[in-house]
Amino acid sequence: MLDDGTPIVRATPGDAGELLTLQRACWVQEALANDTVDIPALHESLDDVRAWLGEWDTYVVRRAGRLVAAVRGRVEHGDTWDIGRIMVAPDLQGSGLGRTLLDHIQAVAPAGVASYVLFTGAASARNQRMYKKAGFRLRRDLPAPPGAVVLTKSARRHKADTQPAHL
């Protein structure tokens, strides 16, 4: 739950259309910051979003009925929690909502997760600052998609002192 009492809830298949709209709004800004439209989130279809809703643990935030933010996570390679699609409506960015979602998705990772991993644009300075403040570290030694960087964080420290935001 957010500080104002707004719940963070699991996404449903019915959220797919709004998630696609939010995703496009958010990744247009990323395309501008990174000087490329070669960003997978910009090229996904409604069917793609419906498909990943079945493959990722996805959470959304609604305000006055409007889907304004979302995040997703899933286990990769046995003990790594892959975090993705942290998105906040452009008119609400900078309010701390993205950081709250980042904390939430880490807190709901399954037991046994040893680390968190996420990607962001190589020129996405604002995102990189937020992730670094949250304890993530750039990992230039790990492969990243073209134009992106990978950041990781140990899960052991975080899980001990964080509860899911919905509790």
Rank of each mutant, 00 (worst) to 15 (best):
Q23Y: 00
K133F: 04
G54V: 12
L53I: 07
V49F: 12
A70S: 14
E55D: 14
H104E: 06
R50N: 02
K159F: 03
G96I: 13
L138Q: 05
R140N: 06
M130R: 02
L167K: 05
F119H: 12
V149C: 10
A134Y: 03
V68M: 07
W52K: 13
A89F: 00
P90C: 07
H166D: 15
Q106L: 06
A114T: 05
H104P: 01
V113Q: 03
S95P: 02
G5R: 10
P145H: 13
D141N: 08
L138N: 07
L19K: 03
P40A: 09
G65L: 14
P90E: 07
T162C: 08
A111N: 14
A148Y: 10
Q106W: 00
M1S: 13
E55I: 02
R50L: 10
R126H: 08
T100W: 00
D48R: 11
D15K: 02
A148V: 00
E76A: 11
Y59P: 01
V150D: 04
P145M: 15
V49L: 06
M130V: 14
T120A: 05
L167F: 10
R157G: 13
H158N: 01
L32H: 08
E44V: 14
E18Y: 05
R10M: 05
G135D: 07
A109G: 09
L22D: 00
P90H: 09
E55C: 08
P145A: 15
D82V: 03
L92D: 05
V9P: 01
P110L: 12
A70V: 04
W52S: 04
A155E: 04
K132L: 06
S115L: 05
L151E: 11
A111Y: 10
A123Y: 14
V61P: 06
L138W: 04
R137L: 12
Q163A: 14
V75Y: 02
L92S: 07
R126Y: 03
D79P: 01
E18M: 09
T80E: 15
L22T: 01
Q128R: 15
H104C: 03
R24Y: 09
V149G: 04
E18C: 05
A11G: 00
E55A: 15
L138G: 00
Q93H: 14
T162K: 08
V49R: 04
D103L: 07
T162Y: 05
Q93K: 13
N127M: 14
D35K: 07
Y59V: 14
R137F: 01
A51Q: 11
I39D: 09
E76M: 08
A89G: 01
L20Q: 08
L32N: 06
T12F: 00
V108D: 01
G98N: 04
I83W: 09
D57W: 05
H104K: 08
N34R: 02
V68W: 01
F136R: 05
K159R: 15
G112S: 14
W52E: 13
W27G: 01
L92Y: 02
A41C: 08
N34H: 04
T162W: 08
M87K: 04
D48H: 13
L20D: 02
L2T: 04
A70W: 02
C26N: 08
L138T: 04
Y131P: 00
L22E: 01
A25V: 03
V37F: 10
K132V: 14
P40I: 06
V61L: 09
P90N: 10
A109S: 14
G147E: 11
G121K: 02
E44Q: 15
K153T: 00
Y59N: 11
L2P: 03
N127F: 12
